[in-house]
Design a protein around this nucleic acid. Structure first.
Lengths: 201, 201
DNA sequence: TATAATTTTGACCGGTTGGTTAAATTATAA
DNA sequence: TTATAATTTAACCAACCGGTCAAAATTATA
């Protein structure tokens, strides 16, 4: 699977991402990353010095994208209902493109709870701005009053959960892979509907 | 931390559960479990033969409790709104008592997606029963129509997510541990409200 | 074309870790 | 009290795994 166009360093990053995201830091073997990248294992150390630094390179790429995207969505110049609808659409699209990211994030949180803190701080998400908008639109009767910390967590939970719990959901509701894909596709309108109805004035 | 009243085997199980649940299979060292249990490491093999069998003992205890409880709640002789309210209350109570279980489940799903299948099958959850009740009560105008596979996943997602994403949520919304505890406590009424409003006829 | 720099490799090292074992200790049964 | 069974332990083993290295190969530069 060597890609002649990519530099070796980049091939390593791609392979490392693929393996770390599924197996986590402890579960990943350097030899497996090397196999994925189609290179000798020593090269991993040549370019990244250690397993931990390689993981950090993968991790920081994930974390660096997570929160800025979230902030951008939350600060969009939109009415609250449109904003939430837009957030749900974009967030689900990102999840479809990278379905293992949520599990990776949760795994990393488990073994290193402070790992995301600097990326959160750097992204500069301003929850008070959203709360302000919610309060203003609740005062106008557009939606009911609700705390931002509940609303945002609810939306992300609804989006993320079917990806992290896929084997369980698929089995309980007896869906094959195709049916589950259809289910995931239906989630967009389902979540938008669920959320908008729940905050109706 | 040796407990004179407990058998050695049980002490091992308790310690193994504590460590495996937080660190997962790959991240756990047998010596650490032995240290937690206050015993010599060789005893782990004497009683459980291998790390994998010890993990399986812990895992099966978790899995054996997860789905039967869920089924019981879903088949309670209650109206749908009362049933969902009851489900949320009991589910959150269980999560407060075992806050690391969701992360453990997700970690285990990641490394072994088929691990829960036999426990799901054994629990015999009948989604069609719930769907039937939803359809009947929607026909009577008690709630709006909604697919069981969306409703159940939504509820579990809302309950579970603040536990698995705690460090991130805590940091984005700038809460200390005490404030987060209050936040978790508020989740019950928040989720009940959110869900019941979203399925209102 | 020669030399230098960079990249790559196979082989190896040392620490970690799951697992084993013989002996010692404790518990139980006869 | 003695024999046997169960439990426990310190020490050890072997495989695994992250990391290193000298040499070779390749690429770049003078």
């Amino acid at each position: 699977m060597t890609n002649p166009g990519e530099s070796t360093e980049n091939q390593i990053l791609i392979a490392a991402r693929e393996v770390f995201i599924v197996k986590g830091f402890e579960g990943t073997r350097m030899q497996e990353i090397a196999d994925h990248a189609g290179i000798n294992k020593a090269l991993l150390h040549y370019y990244f010095r250690s397993k931990e630094k390689l993981f950090e390179a993968v991790f920081s790429e994930v974390a660096a994208n997570l929160f800025p995207a979230m902030r951008q969505l939350l600060e969009a110049e939109l009415g609250i209902r449109e904003k939430l609808t837009f957030f749900i659409k974009i967030y689900l699209k990102a999840l479809h493109e990278n379905p293992f990211i949520p599990s990776f994030v949760i795994n990393t949180l488990n073994s290193n709870p402070e790992s995301f803190l600097k990326y959160i701080k750097k992204a500069g998400i301003k929850p008070l701005l959203l709360q302000k908008q919610i309060d203003e639109e609740a005062a106008r009767g557009v939606i009911r009053a609700i705390k931002a910390e509940h609303l945002v967590v609810n939306i992300i939970a609804l989006c993320v959960f079917p990806f992290v719990a896929r084997p369980i959901v698929q089995n309980i509701f007896e869906m094959n892979d195709e049916e589950y894909q259809a289910y995931l596709s239906a989630r967009e309108s389902e979540i938008i509907d669920f959320v908008l109805k729940s905050i109706q004035a």
